[in-house]
Design a protein around this nucleic acid. Sequence first.
DNA 1: GAAACCTCTTGACATAGGTAAAGAAATCAG
DNA 2: CTGATTTCTTTACCTATGTCAAGAGGTTTC
Lengths: 189, 189
Amino acid sequence: MFRSFFEQHYSLKETTWQQVISLFSPATLDKNSFFIREGEIARTMAFLESGIVRGFYRKDNGEEYNKVLFSAPSFFGDYASLISGRPALFSQQALTDARIWVADYRQFTRLYDTCPDLERFSRKWAESIFVQKEQREIELALFDATHRYLNFRKAYPEAEQQIPQYHIASWLGISPTQLSRIRRKLTAS
Amino acid sequence: MFRSFFEQHYSLKETTWQQVISLFSPATLDKNSFFIREGEIARTMAFLESGIVRGFYRKDNGEEYNKVLFSAPSFFGDYASLISGRPALFSQQALTDARIWVADYRQFTRLYDTCPDLERFSRKWAESIFVQKEQREIELALFDATHRYLNFRKAYPEAEQQIPQYHIASWLGISPTQLSRIRRKLTAS
DNA sequence: GAAACCTCTTGACATAGGTAAAGAAATCAG
DNA sequence: CTGATTTCTTTACCTATGTCAAGAGGTTTC
């Protein structure tokens, strides 16, 4: 199962793992269905076993910005809402049919008191998603859209075939028009 | 001292706090001096008691991008390098004379084994800096430069007087020229 | 106080990227 | 298979912002 992925930053004791895994139950997310909608308070964390999920923000004018793409295998969920207990600023939606594992976040955090290794795990986990965010920040700040698109193709080689280009464009922070222009230039050369 | 700031996310036991505080020693950072330089491996974390520190990245062409501004009171240090043990991608430099408190990060993390409350503290801390990063990400993605500048003035009301505009422009992700144009438009209206 | 330096503003010009609209191509539903 | 829908490309035009260079104020230094 997803144990090796789960423990990539820190290995849990067997007894802790058993308790953790018992919190997760399998589920499916049909294409276009939502895992969480903006305004809801996140209660569950999830593991994406197959498929692609986007996290997006809807601007005042109705336009959407794809803040994050999750491509299996990956954890997902609105961490900010889980952590803070405040309503989600983002929605998360499946872009393909997806198989997932879902767990209640409160039940998970309740284990911290009896399983210090799980708290350590979560510290390392939080540290690592912070570092990831920092890397995305650098990308957006320092590279132009062409460069980001090439990076995207390396990072998500399969995703490009599976989701519409306008979602990719949105994640890159550009319009579909501009992505099309970039693609034309790249194939021309 | 900085206890109330330190404990804003989670309160430590008295004995833990005593051990933590004993790791910190006072120091000063003169204007323009570096706390850490790109390429070094970060060993220390710090608390900024007064002054302003920037974290910046130097591009291939020598240009600099101010990734983060720390304005007292604030913790700072290259978390990514501390966490990963890898060389820093960024430098951190005082933009004004600064008073700081410095602690060895390894000594700090060594306390986790005997002080589970400190590990919890650090989990919450890591979670909160993740959420902060997410907010900065939203700002850069969704707001235009004028809007970001206005937010900056709210968030760092004193900083604007103390540091050159080109540092602010860099943090906003625009050129000094463009910031100047934005300022002109704002005063005109 | 003059020279040197630093910072900010301004103007001229170039470019990446936005918007809107139309048509082409691909995909889906019956 | 056919019509409807979705997605992608292209064109035309516009705007925010970049680069470069010049100049105006300030500050610092000797």
